[in-house]
Design a protein around this nucleic acid. Structure first.
Lengths: 220, 220, 220, 220
DNA sequence: GATGAATGAGGATTCATTCAT
DNA sequence: AATGAATGAATCCTCATTCAT
């Protein structure tokens, strides 16, 4: 097997992952037939088993691939968290804010490019699927920790300690919900949440939302 | 509440609906076997067909039953909308606020008592299921309209006209998310969102959240 | 149980038989659901079991009721066959002819009034059903015997001894086929074989057919 | 014909069709279980779905395959119809007669080799099945048209215009009935209509029947 | 006589997966 | 890497029938 053959096989694998991501997001794990994925990827179900061990493995690969960029995005946070002790307060705060904003934008952009990922995460959250804990530990926990650290540093947090988890949860719901619950929002507002300009609006909204939720001030 | 009341033979049909609600919420429509529902309801799968025309019909009945109380809760809103013209502004606003708070509490209480409903709604929202539009039209639209009316009356809304739909959407995500994404929150925070005191916390949180989201002030 | 009660119960029984005759004729035994018969008869499936022991028993009752008039029609034949020895040839032949014509007309009229019977008989003939031998022995055999006797008496039969059974079979096919294969004939000729005037045509046709088949002469 | 020819592995698909043809003819569509067909064909029911889309599709394939040779047999008729204008009357008539006889023999031979086809056609005729119109249009209509043309040419037809359709119908009933109603005939006459010599007898009978029915003469 | 509820048996079909090619 | 064929398990659902009321 020469190296030249790989690209094609890789592209098949990616094609399968693409289709599977879409179908799993639309119909859920149980509601998606391996044969449908295979057909839309241009092969037969048995052939798919040359690329993935089984349905469950394919599902996990889809989630792993979809979530990895989100993991990568928050890497700076983890580094920043560790480095916080080294930097002076004020500068760090400003940097953190900027970094937070950048990360938020990055997350939004990635979810906008792959809205199915948000749906998959919500599916996992609903059903308590097997991949849930990896998502939580690898992605949400670092974010939460960073957020908590930021709040601890700032004296003017809007939320009491008791409220903080719920405020964080609210963030999660708002960010994921925009993408995951697109069908509902389409029906309710008549606009497509996944349309480019609607995503821009949501990003602007989130920036103001952040001010309200974190700083408490409304400087409209 | 005597033991004789609804001990176990609560009309079979209700028992089926109860079990189905739970299982559909846990596993989704496709992931739930009619036979499992029947077994947990204490009968065989064919017997279930004496009470419901089929799996889809059962699913819709579950949603209809679960959503009805939510519809009923917002009835006052519809009435209030009609009566608004008759009442003086200030008094009406106060009433509306109070009513809004009461309705919010009612919704929270109902969802707390039937967290599976929130999950079902989120499933429908994710998949764009057939019952989605009824939920939107019968429940969310009236709420949104009432909210929009309230915002129009008050000159000091926090949100621009462009932002309003997203603010409303955020509300929906936060309220449903607390119940629907319980597995994720449990994993992330180590507390059970469905526990009584956690729900009370969420209700308190939502009251402060409301001030932030609607008035923009933070009077902690 | 007073006599006054009977009519209603009898009418239910008859109603069931009527519906069952129609549905069995349309869809066959296996293709007809007891529940469908019950519904169209205005009751539920379990209630039907108050009138008939089961599906098979109902089916046999339908056939028995439908075939009885055909049995009755050929009674004169049986009597005539026995009485033939007593009567002089010539007169008997004429009588037999007349009687044969009358019986043929009677059969046609009955099948015209109950075309489903013809279909049921053909179903039984196709599948070799359990009721087939009763139909053969009680109805067809006497007719065949009478026909054979008539042929034996007359020296001028068109058919050799070898051909006689096939000639008889042809008669059966032509008579039953007109009613049983109505869907095919409708499609092929665009006319409804069960329409009153079409049945009259068929009866006229059969009279000429009889001359050809029995006498061999064509006196058009 | 060596044993290796079509011993048992005649392509599975053909094996399924063979079994299905037999069982459908014996028990009708509704009365035949897919599993039974599969079992007798040497596989499991799900495997059968690798070869046919479903029961209905299998049924239609059985009919299509069974009827095709009948379609092919009458092809000359269609050609002859077109070529009639070119040929002189008398010769054409003779040819037509000969051709008609050959075709009749061909049909008889095919039905003798595949008596289940006759039964299937009669089932379709009884129930007005979905394949009926294709059978009528593709097979019977051409025959009828050819017959009508022949009758129109000849001045000495036995039948009036009104009677012609019924005479044609009689032909159909007699030909199909011999095979389709074999169980009844067996019971009635004690001989097997499908036995080789009985089929020969029926063919001889049909030739004399043809003289009677078409020419009106009886030249025994 | 009638019926709602229940059920065992069965029936068509889907599905994830295996395997020989 | 791909696939046609095969299959055990499962799924939804129908059906004939029973039984308590």
């Amino acid at each position: 097997m020469s190296e030249a053959e790989v690209p094609e096989s890789e592209s098949t694998r990616e094609r399968i992952l693409d289709v599977a991501e879409r179908l799993f997001a639309q119909r859920g794990l149980a509601g998606t037939a391996v044969r449908d994925i295979a057909r839309e990827a241009g092969l037969t179900a048995p052939s798919l088993y040359n690329h993935f061990e089984g349905k469950q493995a394919l599902y996990e690969a889809v989630i792993a691939r979809g979530v990895q960029p989100l993991f990568d995005l928050i890497d700076p946070l983890a580094v920043g968290g560790a480095g916080a002790a080294r930097a002076p307060r004020a500068a760090d705060d400003a940097m953190a804010d900027e970094r937070g904003g950048a990360i938020l934008d990055g997350i939004m952009d990635h979810l906008a490019a792959h809205p199915d990922i948000a749906r998959l995460i919500q599916y996992e959250s609903l059903t308590g699927g097997a991949s849930l804990s990896r998502i939580v530990e690898g992605w949400l926990r670092p974010i939460v920790e960073a957020g908590r650290a930021a709040m601890d540093r700032g004296a003017d947090s809007v939320w009491t300690e008791e409220e903080q988890p719920m405020a964080v949860a609210a963030w999660i719901h708002v960010i994921l919900g925009h993408f995951a619950m697109a069908p509902l929002l389409r029906e309710l507002f008549g606009t497509d949440p996944l349309a480019k300009e609607q995503i821009e609006r949501q990003k602007r909204f989130l920036r103001r939302y952040a001010q309200l939720m974190m700083v408490g001030g409304a400087d409209r």
